[in-house]
Design a protein around this nucleic acid. Sequence first.
DNA 1: ATAATGGATATTGGATCCAAAATAATTTGA
DNA 2: TCAAATTATTTTGGATCCAATATCCATTAT
Lengths: 221, 221
Amino acid sequence: MDLVESSKLVRSTTAVDVARILRNRILAGHYAEDQFIRQELIASELGVSRIPVREALAQLEAEGLVVRQKYRGALVPKLSLGEIQEIYEMRGMLEPYLLEAAIPNITREVIDRLRSVVERSRTVRDITEWAGLNMEFHRTLYAQANKPLSVQVLENLLTRADRYLKVQRFLSTGTQEESDAEHQRILDLIEEGNGAGAVDALRQHISWNAEDIRRTIGLDD
Amino acid sequence: MDLVESSKLVRSTTAVDVARILRNRILAGHYAEDQFIRQELIASELGVSRIPVREALAQLEAEGLVVRQKYRGALVPKLSLGEIQEIYEMRGMLEPYLLEAAIPNITREVIDRLRSVVERSRTVRDITEWAGLNMEFHRTLYAQANKPLSVQVLENLLTRADRYLKVQRFLSTGTQEESDAEHQRILDLIEEGNGAGAVDALRQHISWNAEDIRRTIGLDD
DNA sequence: ATAATGGATATTGGATCCAAAATAATTTGA
DNA sequence: TCAAATTATTTTGGATCCAATATCCATTAT
């Protein structure tokens, strides 16, 4: 058995591709909250049939990015203050838990990678790109925790939160730099062996973000 | 406009029905862990086409009850000690959080309903039925928290945990009674206004369950 | 005898077609 | 003129059909 052969990459299914595209569009604010996402339109835009589109919408529904009504269609649910509050409360539990589990496994090399992400993050001005780097930071950090299910749950929460982040950035500026600085500080604390301090800093970081969102966004409910 | 007309219940889609049936089967241990779930077989068994079956499998994949490989099919993933440990660690964070939020909203009437669930739970001997009542207890309790997203996340974890619960019950007996007694104790504490005590008891309850599973099940990884 | 190769079979993924339901347009009645 | 009812159109959900890929089996070569 050949190594190259056994490690050949399997192309993803088109339903997954469609889901990724729609996910990006939704997070970019492409679809209004009260507007149905028409299957036929997506299908013709992407040059596929409606079948993979439907499966993609089903997947996105499971992620909470759309809701579907029988014989009516799928649409992006309204942002709600209650939901984002819950998201931040859960982040406040999950992320410290993951960081604590990750710290013993964080090597010099991981630290360097994280620093490079923060560096790149500083230079970036585009909000979407910044969100991507933000995601990469958390992803590489928590990957060290060896808790794939928890990471999966967290990533779903972060994806949902991205919609709110988008709205927030339009209103409040300068938070980006603060966030990068806080990441930097967490890295510093980890590096100097102060794990508990890093976890505390993270808790603060999340708490501030939550506060920031609450202050910035005015939402019904 | 007629009230009866406006409150008419909308039949769910067949894909959702198929998903529910398959979910129950999986939790009942109907499918071996290494055996592919054939779409055509399910379709003919249920008298539908493969389309809703495929959508159901997509949904179950999102819930973590099956994994799918392109052009190979869907199968129930192996139980792993790591996963069940994560589930219990997350339950240990989420459930106290939800109970705390619920307590101020728990009325006399809710207490009564919960007591009736525990009563029924005592009489039941069938493991599947007991699991259902267990689920109902948690569901009605946490519904008072007004945190739908967190409840959704928790319910997915409980569903996943059900698979392990099944295995556990075959091996250890008597845990059922203990669990009911613990539920009773939590209710008592809530009723006498000792909210913090109830939350602590719940934490203990989950911790014991986790310990029980760890002790009882021998799993690779 | 065993491993490799080529083809038959089974199974999934995607496209097209049809049915059911919702929404929009039109007609009709007062 | 306006509202209710009726018809037409749109859109989704499901079934059938076709293509792509994996698995199984036989044949062949060493």
